[in-house]
Amino acid sequence: MIVAELEVFHSRPVAPTRRVAIGHAQLPMDPPPGYGAVLLSAIAATFAPMLVPELADDYTKLLRQIDRGQRIAQPRLRHRFQQDRIGLTRSTHRLMVEGPRLRFRIDKGTGTPEQFLLAVAYACAPMAVADRAAAIAAINVGVAWRGALDGRFVSRVLGGSTHAAMPALAMSDPVGWAMRILGIETDAKVSKVAVQRRFRERLRDAHPDHGAKNDGAAERIADLAEARRILLA
């Protein structure tokens, strides 16, 4: 299932003029930072390491200007941003939910790093102020990231509040996810005492010292700890 998508239209590398435009943008930001910001951050993480060093400062400045809602002078990163998509090539980046996990589909296609990074930045411009700030913060995380687009990356974008293998449901419905992890009926009203009791019971069942399998134990225990944190917050 597609939970976030950004369609980018761009000139071909051999074209005499360098242009970029945005097509369909499905970038949900609720609950913050939302699937939208996670996708934008992943695109930035993919292409920022390929950006030529002399353009890096201009990109940082562009993000700051968009965050502040300022007028953006053209061109940026040697490209012009436009609304017209005629004659441009399309690339599509997606964030998918596959089972309980998030999967990125980053289309490297024929576009350049500059074009995709510009699209990520300009996609934030129409957002509400708070959403735009959250998206820009996520993009900055992506720009600085060096590594795979795995659970650790998602956790970093989300501020480190969830463990490396965080399921997609924990983003879309954190309370519901937490109750399922602890084995609590989702329509039940539970006290903090009950949450602590269920946490201890599930922790004992998940711990290798009590007969649970070593394989995946760390993730199960991290899930339980995060579920408790959510319900006690």
Rank of each mutant, 00 (worst) to 15 (best):
M1I: 12
M1R: 11
I2H: 03
V3D: 04
A4W: 03
A4E: 04
R18K: 15
G23K: 07
G23L: 03
G23M: 07
L27Y: 11
M29P: 03
D30W: 14
P32V: 09
V38K: 03
A42G: 13
A44L: 02
P49S: 09
M50P: 00
P53I: 13
E54L: 09
T60M: 13
L63T: 01
I66L: 12
D67M: 09
D67F: 00
D67Y: 03
G69C: 08
A73I: 12
A73C: 02
P75I: 06
R76F: 09
R80G: 07
Q82E: 12
D84L: 03
S91L: 12
S91Y: 05
S91N: 13
R105G: 04
G109R: 13
P113I: 09
Q115M: 04
L118I: 08
V120E: 07
A121Q: 04
A121L: 06
A123S: 15
A128P: 04
D131A: 15
A133D: 08
I139H: 05
G142Y: 10
A144C: 06
G147K: 11
L149K: 02
R152F: 11
R152D: 12
R152G: 15
V154P: 00
S155H: 10
S161C: 07
A168P: 01
L169P: 03
A170Y: 00
G176V: 07
E185S: 11
A188E: 07
S191C: 10
K192H: 15
F199L: 14
R202M: 11
R204Q: 10
D205C: 00
D205I: 02
A206F: 03
D209G: 12
D209S: 14
A212K: 04
E219N: 11
I221W: 05
A222I: 13
A225R: 15
A225H: 07
I230P: 03
L231C: 04
L231P: 02
L232H: 09
